[in-house]
Structures are given as C-alpha cells and as structure tokens.
C-alpha cells in the first residue's frame, strides 16, 4: 500500500461522490413528480376533457392529443429539413452556403424559446388572425430544426474519411457515398439524435403560449387553437384550485413518462451492434 494506491482510491471516491450528487436532483424531481402526480393518473385522466371549474374529475386527454399532433407536425417539417441541413453542413462544409448555414443554425439554436414564440406570433398568428396548430408547429420547428441539423452534422463527421475514400475509390458518385454509406451507416446515431430532439420539444411551453395557445376542447382543426401538455400544466399550475394542482402534477408525470418512453424506445429498438 503506497501513496499512489491511496491517491487512486481518493480519486475514485471523489468521482463517485460527484456522480451521486449529480443524481440527487434527477431522482428528487422524479420522486416529487411521482408522489404528487401518480394519484391523478386514472384512466379518465387520459381520455376526458377538463371538468368545469369547481367540479372534481376530468382529464387532459385533449392536451395529450394536442401534443401528439404538434409533435408530429413539427417532426414532419423538422426532420427532413434538419437532416438535409446536417448533410450540407458536414459533407459540403467548404461551400459558402454551408458556412452561412452554419452561422444561421448556431444563431437559431441560441435564441431563447420565448422569443421564438413571439416571432412565430408575428409571422403566423397576426397575419392569419388567430392562434393555430400551424403556428405552434412552426414555432416548435424553429427549435427542432437546428437541433436535428447540429446532431446530424456531428454524427456524420464521426464517419472516418477513410470510409468515404473507400466509397469514392469504388467509383461511386459522391452523392451515393454520402447517402448509401455515410448517411445509412449513421442511421442508429441519427435516430437517437432525432428522438432526443423530439423529447426536447415535447416539453417546450414558451413557444406555444403565443402560437397554439390553449384550448378546452378536443382537436378542432389545424387552424384552430390547440391544447398541449406543457401549456395545460402551466394553466393548471397557476390556478388557485387544489384539484387542478394535482392535475398539473399528473400532466408533468405524463410528460416525463413520454420522454422516458422515447429513451427506452431507443434502447429497445436500436440495440448497439456489439461488433460495430
């Protein structure tokens, strides 16, 4: 037992303690949300509309559906655009358009989400005279597109140059090398990146406040205001009613479970190849 041995021990102990400290907030959030929200999770909570003020019961079914609609619309816009931009940023990084795009993506991803909401309000809500699902999806896309573009760029840059050169040396056109070898070869990490981006926007509240706004009804069309889980949580949480507070916790729990479910999905359906 020399001093190196003890130094090693001390270091491992230090690292483990830091890891534990980092886990404390995570588990306390989980514990707190579960202990406050679990009691709200009745079958009716998932399927019914909110009850009128003063009445006990009701649910946030409309907000769950609304979030699904918003996330789907946003994904339809953002995934193709984000992947395309990512390819441009990674594979054509020398081109001037790519350099400009890099700066744009950088700026977009650093805009506070409330500003994104205000911008979408000015861009879509005002001209079309009304809150709508369209506006909400556009606001969310402004957050999701740079996220997907950045992760795509970084994942594609991880593919070694030797692999690209092997493709070129086989006489494949550059586009084929990019699509069939670089892009398809990164499918797993790209899917993870996209799912993480979806999880991120699933919880966004600020961009929706001025765009999709809120609603007490089921989905009524893409040009109408639309409820979403985060905004519903906000509405319930700032209310003076005990029952609504419990429902806000319930909504928070659903949101956490959704994000957790997406993460599990990655692990179950995309097992890392042991050999790759």
């Amino acid at each position: 037992m020399n001093w190196r041995h003890w130094l090693n021990r001390l270091f491992i102990f230090g690292v483990c303690s830091l890891a534990l400290i980092a886990l404390v907030p995570l588990f306390s959030v989980l514990f707190y949300v579960i202990s406050h929200g679990a009691s709200s999770l009745t079958p009716g909570f998932f399927t019914s509309l909110p009850a009128p003020v003063g009445e006990i019961g009701g649910g946030i079914g409309h907000a769950i559906l609304g979030s699904v609609v918003l996330i789907s619309m946003c994904s339809l816009i953002s995934i193709p655009l984000g992947l395309g931009m990512g390819i441009l940023l990674s594979e054509y990084s020398q081109k001037p358009v790519s350099r400009v795009l890099g700066v744009v993506v950088e700026l977009l991803s650093s805009i506070p989400s409330i500003v994104v909401g205000l911008f979408a309000y000015a861009l879509v809500v005002r001209p079309f005279r009304g809150f709508s699902a369209h506006a909400g999806a556009i606001a969310l896309s402004m957050i999701m597109i740079p996220l997907v573009a950045r992760t795509t760029e970084e994942m594609l840059k991880l593919v070694p140059r030797s692999v690209r050169e092997a493709g070129l040396a086989l006489g494949l056109p550059k586009a084929r090398v990019i699509l069939n070898i670089v892009f398809m070869g990164s499918m797993r990490s790209l899917t993870v990146g996209v799912i993480l981006a979806v999880a991120r926007i699933a919880g966004e509240t600020a961009p929706l406040l001025f765009t999709a706004f809120a609603s007490q009804h089921w989905f009524q069309g893409l040009s109408e205001p639309l409820a979403s889980i985060p905004v519903q949580i906000y509405t319930y949480a700032v209310s003076p009613y005990e029952d609504w507070h419990a429902k806000a916790w319930g909504g928070a729990l659903i949101l956490i479970l959704m994000v957790l479910g997406l993460n599990l999905l990655i692990r179950v359906f995309l097992p890392r190849r042991k050999d790759g």
């Binding site: 030797s162 692999v163 050169e165 092997a166 040396a169 499918m187």
Partner: peptide, 16 residues
Amino acid sequence: RRRIGMVFQKPNPFPS
C-alpha cells in the same frame, strides 16, 4: 475509379 480499384493502408470496410 470504376476501372482502378484501391486498397488502403488501414482496412476500411463500410461499418454498417
């Protein structure tokens, strides 16, 4: 390049 094959210093099979 379709008429001139190439083998590199480090083996580089397509990983996926």
